[in-house]
Design a protein around this nucleic acid. Structure first.
Lengths: 116, 116
DNA sequence: CGCGAACGATACGGTAGCGTAACGAAATCG
DNA sequence: CGATTTCGTTACGCTACCGTATCGTTCGCG
C-alpha cells in the first residue's frame, strides 16, 4: 500500500518535521548520519563500515566518523567480528531505537496534520 | 485530508529520501538551512531575518549565514526593504523553487514505493 | 611461511557552521 | 535635534565534518 502524496503535502510534511527538529534542541544529526542510522535500523544486519560506505556512496572515513559521533550519543555500538577480525559489526542500541521511534512518531504526527 | 502513515512507512519514507539525497550529490543543505528554505517557500511573504530567527528559534547570525550560503547557491535572494531600510526582505528565486520541486518529486516517488 | 589484499582507523589540512559579542545604519521617541 | 532602540551583519574562537593519504591488523593465497 503506497503512500500517495500531493506535492503540497510532501513539502508540507518535510517543512513541519524539519521545523520541529530545528526548534527542538540543537542535538541534530547530519543528513549523512541520519541516513546511516536509518540504514542500520531498517535494513537487516549485519552492517559493516565497508558495506555502509558502499550503500551510501561515501568514503569509509565518513562512516567511521559518523559512528564515532553517534556512538558517543549512544545511538549505535561497534563490535569486532570474531569470525573475521578485520571486520567491525555495527550494532543497534536501545537509545538508537528510541531515537528513531520518536522520529517516526514526529513524522506521523505531522503527517496527520497535513491539509488538503 | 491527512497523510496517514504507519511507523514503518514513516521511517521507511525518511530512509529512502535521505538515502537518495546522500547518494545524489554532495550539495546537501544543513537541517537548519533546509528548514529556512522551506519556510521561505511555503509560508506567505514577507520574510525577514528577524522573523525567520524567531520562527525557527535560532539566533540571527544563523539566518544570515544560511542566507549567505543559499544565496551563493542561487536558492534565495535578499532585497533591502525601501519602506524601512533597516529590514531585509528575503525573496524566492527560480532555482530555489526548482530545488524544492525536485525534493517534492523525490518524496512523492519514494512515498509511492513504500510497502505495506 | 611470506606477500599482497582487505578492512577499519587515523592523520592532516581545509572548510563550514556555531554562539557570543560587538558594530554600523536606520528609524523612533522624547 | 540627540539618545535609544531595532535590524542585519561582521568578528572571533571553537567545534565538527570533509577528502585524501596512510597506517596497523588480519586474512587469504601461493
Amino acid at each position: 500500500m503506497p503512500v500517495d502524496l500531493t506535492p503540497s503535502q510532501a513539502l508540507g510534511l518535510w517543512h513541519a518535521v524539519t521545523l520541529q527538529q530545528v526548534q527542538g534542541d540543537g542535538r541534530d544529526l547530519t543528513l549523512r548520519q541520519l541516513a546511516i542510522l536509518l540504514e542500520i535500523y531498517l535494513v537487516p544486519p549485519p552492517h559493516t563500515v565497508r558495506g555502509l560506505a558502499a550503500k551510501l556512496g561515501v568514503t569509509k572515513p565518513v562512516i567511521t566518523r559518523a559512528l564515532d559521533t553517534m556512538g558517543e550519543l549512544g545511538l549505535v555500538t561497534r563490535v569486532r567480528d570474531e569470525r573475521d577480525r578485520r571486520n567491525v559489526i555495527i550494532k543497534r542500541t536501545v537509545d538508537g531505537a528510541l531515537y528513531l521511534e520518536r522520529l517516526g512518531d514526529l513524522i506521523i504526527a505531522k503527517g496527520r496534520a497535513q491539509p488538503l
